[in-house]
Nucleic acid binder design. Structure first.
Length: 286
DNA sequence: TTGTGTTTTATTGCCTCC
DNA sequence: GGAGGCAATAAAACACAA
């Protein structure tokens, strides 16, 4: 038997003329009458009753109701309960009694209504929280996707530019190496390098641009460049280190920079460790 | 009308607080 | 230990499509 509540024997209620018990059956425990009275009688189970004697009032209301059916509250009752719930969703005993009297309900019914109302509110609140979290997640996902796409686009641009650069460099290496007065740098290469120089100047003495930390690249002077590792077997090979202006201290004011461009063929031709001088500023560093 | 899904009312058992 | 809250559940009431 549950503690803290009054119980009574259902069989005695069904048979007897106790108006208080009948009053209760008329509203709070209709289900037991309409559906399972027989089983209750048979089993002599005990059912919860009122918490206190002062809950037994409003006889008039219940005498008007058919005791056979579980009834829903009227819209006026629900409206008042909703208003009360908005003010405070917990129900202290005094308010419960007042509300019950005002609405013509059992205090127990008011308590149950608040209980169920809190449960509904909690469910709705969970749904709202879920919606907020989901929209936040969707927004982040969308941002992430666009960043990934942008990253892919930039990567493919880098690859494309590197390919062009390799072609140009290969063409250059195929030509006799003369001094820059007699054999000036082809305009395309000059443009590429001039862009790099501009980048270098604008980025300060230390190249800091990073497209993808995981992507292969070689260092061209102190400026970061991005040669795919797959292409190292071609005319452009990675260098572990290239002598920079800062390193050797020479600053002749030239706007071009040192770059290593050497193919396997070139290495074979010139031998390991030999400096390949192109414009006097391309070094092979083993 | 009937089957089915949803909402509302109420019960039960367990838990926490005082 | 009593009172009250909550989760889970039952079942009536209701809504609605077929």
């Amino acid at each position: 038997m549950e503690s803290g509540r009054l119980y009574f024997d259902t069989t005695s209620v069904c048979r007897g003329n106790n108006s208080m018990n009948m009053l209760y059956l008329g509203n709070a425990d209709l289900s037991f009458r309409g559906r399972s009275m027989m089983s209750m009688e048979e089993g002599s189970k005990r059912r919860p009753f009122f918490s206190s004697p002062d809950e037994l009032y409003d006889e008039e209301y219940y005498e008007e109701q058919s005791p056979e059916k579980k009834r829903r509250l009227t819209s006026e009752q629900v409206h008042l309960l909703e208003k009360s719930f908005e003010e405070e969703n917990k129900l202290e005993p005094e308010r419960k009694t007042q509300l019950a009297k005002k609405l013509g309900l059992q205090p127990r019914q008011v308590a149950v209504w608040f209980q169920n109302r809190r449960a509904r509110w909690k469910t709705k609140q969970l749904e709202r929280d879920y919606d907020v979290l989901k929209s936040s997640y969707d927004s982040l996902l969308s941002t992430y996707d666009s960043i990934v796409k942008e990253n892919e686009k930039l990567k493919s641009e880098v690859v494309s530019l590197n390919e062009k650069l390799q072609v140009q460099a290969k063409e250059m290496l195929g030509e006799p190496l003369l001094d820059k007065e007699a054999n000036p740098l082809p305009i395309e290469i000059a443009q590429i390098f001039s862009i790099k120089v501009d980048d270098h100047m604008s980025a300060g003495s230390v190249g800091s641009a990073v497209v993808d930390e995981g992507s292969p690249h070689v260092v061209v002077d102190s400026v970061d460049s991005y040669f795919p590792a797959d292409n190292y077997g071609g005319c452009v090979a990675p260098i572990e280190r290239v002598q920079s202006e800062e390193d050797d201290g020479s600053d002749d004011g030239r706007s071009y920079f040192n770059v290593f461009v050497a193919s396997e063929t070139e290495q074979q031709n010139h031998g390991e460790g030999e400096a390949l001088n192109w414009w006097g500023n391309m070094y092979y560093v083993a």
